[in-house]
Write a protein that binds this DNA or RNA. Structure first.
Lengths: 211, 211
DNA sequence: CTTATGCGGACGAATTCCTTCCGCTTGTGT
DNA sequence: ACACAAGCGGAAGGAATTCGTCCGCATAAG
């Protein structure tokens, strides 16, 4: 648990640059982009990248851990806000799409998931995140903001699909499309459904499988 | 325009097998899967594949053309059904996910689109398809089945995102998730929105860009 | 000023994928 | 049945990518 601050100042800075760059580039092009691409985006050489992270897997784990942690922090903020917390949580999605992109990689990408799965600390954070979001969903349902025939899994899946699918359409009107379609999807979560949904409400654990 | 039926019977059969296999495998793993994978799925050798399609681009074009044509036929059926045509069109989506997967490749995949784009006949079919769907949307809106503040582009984008994003989560409960989330998304298209959507309704052409 | 830590990017190895080629098989017409 | 053309499979050459290391130079720290 010792935090080896033995890192020189510039080394520390570069490390952060690399993680930020990796987040962005993983989001845009998938977790299998060449390491050199990550390095270029971070403005460092490949050597620097490999000295800090032994191999690609280490980098992926680090990025995933960081992303989950940020999301968890956001979710806790929303939780603390009480009643309208759920909507404020959803609202912030617009501000950090790259986080969802990253999540997509770890949730939907067949090659990235096994890597992340083996990291105990990430697994703990992810579980914690699910719990908090689950709480937000229940509160929102209790106050009538969210339709009651859906589970947290349904909500997560719908939002994740919409937000993460946007990756490709980042053209000029990409932002507009993003906003509109997300707004549409969230509209689907209002109470007062016309027809009953098939099947049973999905739990957050339903989303994990990916064995 | 001559249809060279000079193909021997088994050759013809193999050609169809290849296209079907390509559809499936492109859908699952993207348009850049190794040609050998396509061949294996079709139960033929690589040589056979290359004799029928000079290179990958030719295969992609053929698959895209075929898929668009099938979709267009379905849309026209729905159109002919009159009033409830829109819903019957949406209903059939569940039955042919691979078509949407393929569409995803040609609509959202940066590498496949330029290839398809250069094929005049595909372009014509795609445009025709957009027109027919646009008509279905307007009819549905006129009869009050579909909220009136969305454009065809919005509808297509939402549905495409949800359906195509499902690719990864094809686990045991994949089908259930698919059904529920799609049902949710379609619910968002009911009339009677709570809050107005941001921006302007998207036209079908808004989706094409991808310059 | 000294030194250890960090940096960049060229490079050899390994992997993946494309495409061709050729000997064998199988439809097809007589 | 027969002969021939058309088709088939898959091994293999070759090109392109990407990995991860290594070493001479730079620079933060004291």
């Amino acid at each position: 648990m010792v935090e080896p601050q033995a890192l020189r100042a510039d080394a520390r800075r570069n490390r952060d640059l690399i993680i930020a760059a990796a987040k962005a580039v993983f989001a845009e092009r998938g977790a299998d982009v060449p390491m050199e691409e990550v390095a270029r985006r971070a403005g460092v050489g490949v050597g620097t990248l490999y000295r800090r992270f032994p191999d690609r897997d280490a980098l992926v784990r680090e990025v995933a851990g960081d992303s989950f942690a940020v999301l968890l922090a956001r979710a806790r903020e929303a939780e603390a806000e009480g009643g309208r917390g759920w909507e404020s949580f959803l609202g912030c999605l617009k501000d950090m799409p790259e986080l969802w992109f990253t999540l997509r990689l770890t949730l939907f990408s067949p090659d990235a998931w096994p890597i992340v799965r083996d990291d105990a600390s990430v697994r703990v954070t992810a579980r914690e995140l699910r719990l908090v979001i689950d709480g937000l969903v229940r509160v929102a349902q209790a106050e009538g903001t969210l339709r009651s025939d859906v589970g947290t899994g349904d909500v997560l899946m719908l939002v994740a699909l919409v937000v993460t699918g946007m990756r490709a359409s980042s053209g000029a009107l990409g932002a507009v499309v993003h906003e509109r379609v997300l707004a549409l999807a969230l509209d689907a979560l209002r109470p007062g459904s016309a027809a009953p949904l098939p099947g049973r409400p999905l739990t957050p654990d339903d989303l994990e499988p990916r064995v």
